[in-house]
Design a protein around this nucleic acid. Structure first.
Lengths: 132, 132
DNA sequence: TCGGACCCTCACATTGATGTGAAGGTCAAG
DNA sequence: CTTGACCTTCACATCAATGTGAGGGTCCGA
């Protein structure tokens, strides 16, 4: 598919698809006329990239971790330098911190919302019984 | 405490503490001489702000959700407008999405690291053998 | 063959979070 | 009283992610 379709299917402006390529996050084939040509797996890839960007990771880091995230491993273990390992471990831990922070605050928001909805004093333990 | 101490205790540049104030995230008292004066609870507050910023939330949103996160509720339920409720629900869901994305990718990194460690000879101990 | 819908590159603008430094006030210790 | 370590505001700089648009090529259908 070309950039327009990928853009629509991922909800990502063309401009950004080109930017991600410039940053080395995706590498498109080129048709003889110069048009970028993407295959199906770029859809998930782009969605994944956007998710990570939204979660606060810079493209520089995303570029480093993306290669390890392919389902069929394309990166051989011997290619992993000690520096890369260290980077990955660090990023893994940083991501865990982010998860904790987000979870904590999200739960606090949820608790607040529950309290507001119930109109009850917030000194009780809220419980879920609604599945929307 | 004054801005210097808060800066040191939170690992946050003074510049940013003033910026957070400018963005309405914290409101410092002023000493008669104009110096900002912070009490203990600002330490946690600033750490929390930084965590949320790092997790991709803009100051605009953080400002909206912070008031609901105080341990002893300072915001009364009647103050919650429907718009605010909707905003909070939306942010709560967005944060859940972020958590899922981060968790998924972090687990993939962890899995990769495990595989690398298993597949590599144990001479991966951090040591410099730079024969460059 | 022409128009419209694609695509290309290039380049400048903007926004949010930050860095940095100038110019100056406050205050405690020497 | 002076010095040095604080603090103040103001303002410009940077960086990453993104917006926007000019200027131009490609290709398909009327």
């Amino acid at each position: 598919m070309r950039i327009g379709e990928l853009s629509e299917r991922t909800g990502t402006p063309r401009r950004l698809l080109r930017y991600y390529e410039e940053q080395g996050l995706i590498m498109a084939e080129r048709a003889p006329n110069g048009y970028r040509e993407y295959d199906e797996r770029f859809v998930d890839r782009v969605v994944q990239i956007r998710g990570l960007l939204d979660a606060g990771l810079p493209t520089r880091i995303i570029k480093q971790i993306l290669p390890c995230l392919d389902k069929p491993r394309t990166i051989y273990f011997p290619d992993a330098t000690p520096e890369m390992i260290a980077t990955l471990e660090h990023q893994r831990d940083r991501m865990s911190e982010r998860v904790e922070c987000l979870t904590r605050n999200r739960d606090a928001i949820a608790e607040y919302l529950d309290a507001v909805r119930d109109g009850n004093p917030p000194d009780r333990v809220p419980q879920e019984s609604t599945a929307s």
